[in-house]
Every structure is written in C-alpha cells, then in structure tokens.
Amino acid sequence: MTLLSVRDLRVSFPTRSGIFEAVRGVSFDLGRERLGVVGESGSGKSMTGRAILGLVRPPGRVTAQRLELEGQSILNLPEPQMRRLRGARISMVMQDPKFSLNPVMTVGRQIMESYRLHGKGDPRAKALEMLAAVQIRDPQRVFDAYPHEVSGGMGQRIMIAMMLAPDPDILIADEPTSALDVSVRNEVLHILDRLVRERGMGLIFISHDLNLVAQFCDRVLIMYAGRVVEELPAADLTRARHPYTQGLLNSLPRLDRPVDRLAVLQRQSSWRED
C-alpha cells in the first residue's frame, strides 16, 4: 500500500544569478518500508525531506505534480493544517539532538508535549513507555532530566521516542546517526529499525553513508544534483549501474580490500540531465 506518493517534486530558490533548483523532479512512492535516500552534500536529499514536511521557507518554492499522503494532497498546505500533520502523521528525526531538544524543558515534558498535541490517553504513562521502548534503562530518571544532562546517543533516542510517541505513519530520519559514535550508532539504528517494523511505519532514511543505507534499508534512491539518478533494492547496491553510484562505492576506503590509491569520482555533466 502506498503511504506517500511523490511525483516531479521541485524546490527552487531565487538567487542573484537566477533561479537555483535544489530538487529537480524527484518521484517515488513509499509503502510500509524503509527507503534510503543517499547523496552527497548539495544533492537535494535533505531538501526533499523538508519539502515533504512543508518546511521549506520562503523565498524557497515547492512544486510537484503530486504530493499525496494516503491519497490526500499535502502540497503547500496552509501552515496550521501542516502543523497538525507534522508529528501526528509524519515525523522527522534530525541529525543532531543538541539542536532539536528544548534545553530548558525536561525530557519527559517534551515527550508529553509532543504526545498531548496529537495522541490520546495518559501522556505521562505513554512518555515513560516510549522511553522504555527506545531502551533507556532508567526511564524515570531520564524523564526528569534536562537535555544537557544526557549523552548524544541518549539524546538521539529521546528524539526518536518523542517523534514516535504519537504513532505517525511516516518517519523521515535525516542523518539520524552521523553525529554519533559507531557503537552508539548501531544501537540507535536497531531501535529505529525495530520500532518502524513493529508499528508498520514508512521510513525515509536520508544519509550520505552508502554502506549504512544498504544494510539498513529495503530500497535506495541515489540522488545527484537534485535528481534521482538511480533506484534499486538495497541488496543490489553492489550491482549498481549508474557511474555515479559506482564511483561513490569505489571511492570509499575499505578494511577488507587495501588499495594503494583510492578511486576518484570523475563527475560528468551528463549526470545532471536525463
């Protein structure tokens, strides 16, 4: 079943030297699956996520032939309606929890807040339950803590707890682990994976890390200069056909395959067009 359907999504910004298109005609369908969106900085991957959530600020402009959440158009909805949608039906986890948690509010209050806006039932019990669900050992203590009193990995788990509390249909995770150490990263990913699977959510996982996405997602979109250059099942990533995807894979140093020199990606202007 299709949760989110995107056709010909475009995001443009006016600049001094004309209009800059950050996203140029992105199309995809998302079901109850884990979709990876991979690309380098400036590929438009984050902007795609922001456009879906209606977070592109003017003078940026979002257009699309279609941007539908379960058959209902969410393209350029008025802000009050969009706000009701965000959190309740589509949530977003950002890269760095330091900047997404309110520093003067306890963790528990923030989760309750996000839940009270959208959910029903006892918010306190729900918040504690969510903290337990993201495998925080002592939910009661963390509930009363302030964001600066928790570590980065813990902060990211709290963000996930907060975002998943109202049971959204879709979670957009923008580089949720790139600020974390590897050991913590894996834990956070496992939690995310389990929750998404158990609740039957659709996940859009935005990342620059090909390996991670290949391991973690079902399907991968590879973006370059605002366009999707290749789409393939994550398991087939090594058999990628597009020279950009191949180039990205080859430019990574690898523990299991020592090389004298790393392959350098030769960008081609033809990749910008079809």
């Binding site: 894996n186 990913l189 390996n211 290949a214 391991q215 973690f216 398991a235 690898r254 523990l255 299991d256």
Partner: peptide, 8 residues
C-alpha cells in the same frame, strides 16, 4: 564493520 557485512 557490522553495517558493512551485508554487501562487502
């Protein structure tokens, strides 16, 4: 390495 295993 754990997230390399799948495809390497």
């Amino acid at each position: 390495a754990s997230y390399d295993r799948g495809w390497s």
